[in-house]
Amino acid sequence: MPSKPAPPPAPTPDRDNPLFNQSLEKGLEVLRAFNGVHRTLTLSELAALTGMNKSSAQRTIHTLEALGYVDKHPQTRRFRLTPRVMEIGYNYLAADALIPVASPYLSQLAAASGETANLTEPVGLDMVYVAQLMTAKHMPVLTPVGMRIPMYCTSSGRAYLSTLPDEQVMAMLAQSTRAARTPATLTDPDAIFERVAACRRLGYACNEEELFIGDMGLAAPVVNSQGVTVGAVHVSPPARRWSMAEAQKKLAPLVMECAWAISRSIAH
C-alpha cells in the first residue's frame, strides 16, 4: 500500500450551513447543464435537467443572461452559453502554478513521442484536461482542455488512483458509474483495481480502447513536494498507429520520464 498521504476528498455541499448560498448553487447548476449533448436548451429543458421548478429556473437563467454568461436565440428562444463563461476556466488555468512548470516537459514529450502530450488534474471521480501539447499527427478523438474524463476507465485516472490507499481506491470505484463506454471498458471494480495495482509496479497505467474506440492511453502520476499526487501526464496513441505492446515499450518510458521531471520541478 502506498505511504503517500491522500489528497482531500471532493467537497460535499453543506446546504444546512447559513452561509451556503443556494442561488449561487442554482446558477452554477444551470451553467453546468450545457455541454456537448445539450448545446442549446429551452427553459423547460433547463428546469428538468437541474431539478428546479420553472419559476426558479427562469429567474436563474434571466440573471445569467443579464450578466452576459448566456444568451437567447431570438427565433428559437433557446439558450446557449456565451464566450464569457470561458473567463472562469481561463482564470483557473492562469492561476494554476503546475501548468507553466509542466509545459516545457510536455513539449519535450510530444516531440519525443510524436503524439499529443496531456496534463490532467483530479476533480471528484474524474480527471480534467488542463494542458495539452499537440502534434501535427491525426487524433481520432478531440480531447480539449477543460474536458472531463472518468478515472475508472482512463490511464490518467488509474495513474492517479495508484497513489491512493487501497480502501480509498475501492471506495472511489464504488462511487463511480463504471458504465461500459466501449465493448472493451472494464466495469468490475476488482478488475479495474488490478490495473491500478499494476501501475504501482510498472510506474505507468494503461487504457486500451476503454473510453473511445481506436484510442489508447499511457499515463504516469505527478507528485508534489508533500508526496500528494496533483495530476497525471498521458499520451493517447491511436490504435491505427500503435499496438499496445509497442506503445508500452516505446512510449511508457517517455511518459514516466516526463511525469518524474515535472514532479521533481514542483518539489523544489
Rank of each mutant, 00 (worst) to 15 (best):
A179K: 08
L142V: 09
G146Q: 08
F20G: 08
T143D: 12
P237N: 10
K249C: 12
S236N: 13
R39H: 12
H268V: 01
V101I: 12
L186C: 06
C199G: 15
G36A: 04
A94E: 13
D126H: 06
S23F: 11
P165D: 04
T229P: 01
A47G: 13
H73E: 08
H73G: 03
T50S: 08
A239F: 07
R78M: 12
V37S: 10
A245K: 10
P189M: 09
L142T: 07
P74V: 10
T12L: 11
F79I: 06
A47V: 09
A10L: 12
W242P: 01
L186W: 01
I99N: 04
T187S: 14
A198R: 13
L173C: 07
M256R: 14
N91W: 04
A66Y: 03
P165A: 08
S176C: 07
R59L: 14
G36H: 05
P150Y: 01
L254Y: 04
R181N: 10
A171L: 07
R84H: 09
A180Q: 12
E25Q: 14
L24R: 13
L41C: 14
A191F: 00
A174I: 02
E45H: 06
L24C: 07
A47H: 09
D166N: 09
N224C: 15
V70D: 04
R195D: 06
